[in-house]
Amino acid sequence: MSGFYRVLPQPVMSLLILGLWLILAPAPTLGQVLIGLILAIALPWATRGFWPDRPRLTNIGAALRLLAVFLADVIMANLVVARQILGPVGRLRPAFLEVPLDLRDPFVATLLGSIVSLTPGTVSAEIDRERWVLQVHVLHLEDSAEAVALIKARYEAPLRKVFRC
């Protein structure tokens, strides 16, 4: 197992590089597959010193469930934001919100920040890695305790289940 990770330090990234290369190539010929394979092995190896240790994806089922929830929320988010942008602007109550995090991993915290940015009325502004607080800007805040609980239950808990951290 350790030999496998020495040749392919980032298996998921290698797969992504190979897939992207074949998608961008004009035609998937044998030569293109070979170049893609060389790049998929050489690039993660050459950049291995730059990548922080990150938790491995352990629960595929939970990941797929989170992805489904996320995609549905992205579409919902846009309808909600559409109504807020076209409606009376003066009635919006924008506010900053601090979400205390239970997870303790920089990579997963970044992932959570990205998800929060793409879902209803919230953009992540800063991740405080000393206090483990995610600062979020809300376009229209009604109840801050409810909003924090929603983010924690809907995205943070599943993320912790996916990466076991």
Partner: peptide, 17 residues
């Protein structure tokens, strides 16, 4: 929208979709 942080919401969500 009147404030920078409020303006940030439009492009990140609607334009991306």
């Amino acid at each position: 929208l009147p404030d920078f942080f409020m303006r940030l919401h439009g492009p990140t969500k609607a334009t991306t979709l």
